[in-house]
Design a protein around this nucleic acid. Structure first.
Length: 223
DNA sequence: GCCCAGGGGGCTC
DNA sequence: GAGCCCCATGGG
């Protein structure tokens, strides 16, 4: 597999193998933002439990989160782990959307992408990946989300270094693919799908054998 | 029991 | 700016 078009090739194979993932699973855009914080270093199944608890408490809104005492918020998000830390982060997020945009996510979404990103990086609990999750999946901006799976898999494929600054990885994708938010969203979701299903089972392969693009030359006979 | 999840903050050097 | 440690539940 040659380098030009390699990223498109991987995407096509992932899509053919797994089909559209249709991320982000949520009823509202603010729910996407909350999920982006809750899923930090956390299995999605645990996040779903926390989201459900927030919903049944009527707290899945900026105003709802601001109104709750932080310890009660922590109790609600308990199943997602790091509950004290995440309660603080959700408080910071809810305060931000209220102060900066009057809780209007539509207004927020009309702001400039880079300005929004810088703004959000200043919020407690929002780092580069979470900011990009929000930009892409809540606001529809064409940014590419980089997570641990992306680094691991594309390093195995010989397309990226083993480690390095976040922007070097995101540039790999945004410099070599059309800036299509829908495709970027599918691509990241497919990478996570591959990582969740195969990185743990066959860590030495990182799933590339399954796609028949293993640089070590192994075929997809990996069960 | 051990390992790791769809990271980020805070501290040290 | 890189390297640690901390946050914490739940499934494999």
């Amino acid at each position: 597999m040659k380098r030009p078009g390699a990223l498109r090739e991987v995407y096509d194979r992932l899509l053919a193998r797994f089909g559209p993932q249709r991320w982000w699973p949520a009823e509202t855009r603010f729910e996407v933002m909350v999920g982006a914080v809750l899923t930090q270093a956390t299995a999605w199944g645990n996040v779903e439990k926390a989201i459900a608890r927030l919903k049944s408490a009527g707290a899945l809104s900026p105003e709802g989160i601001r109104r709750l005492p932080v310890d009660e918020l922590a109790h609600l998000v308990y199943p997602s782990g790091y509950y004290n830390a995440k309660a603080r982060k959700l408080k910071a997020l809810a305060a931000y959307v209220g102060e900066a945009y009057g809780d209007d996510i539509d207004v927020m979404g009309r702001s400039d992408t880079l300005a929004l990103r810088e703004e959000m990086l200043g919020i407690h609990g929002i780092g580069e990946e979470t900011a990009d999750d929000i930009l892409l999946y809540a606001l529809g901006k064409p940014v590419f989300v980089i997570d641990a799976y992306t680094k691991r898999i594309f390093h195995r494929l010989g397309l990226a270094p083993e480690r390095g600054p976040y922007f070097e990885y995101s540039a790999l994708f945004t410099d070599n693919l059309p800036h299509d938010a829908e495709m970027f969203g599918e691509y990241h979701a497919l990478i996570v799908r591959l990582g969740v299903e195969y990185c743990k089972k066959t860590p030495a392969c990182a799933g590339c054998c399954l796609l028949d693009i293993c640089p070590a030359g192994r075929s997809q006979a990996v069960d």
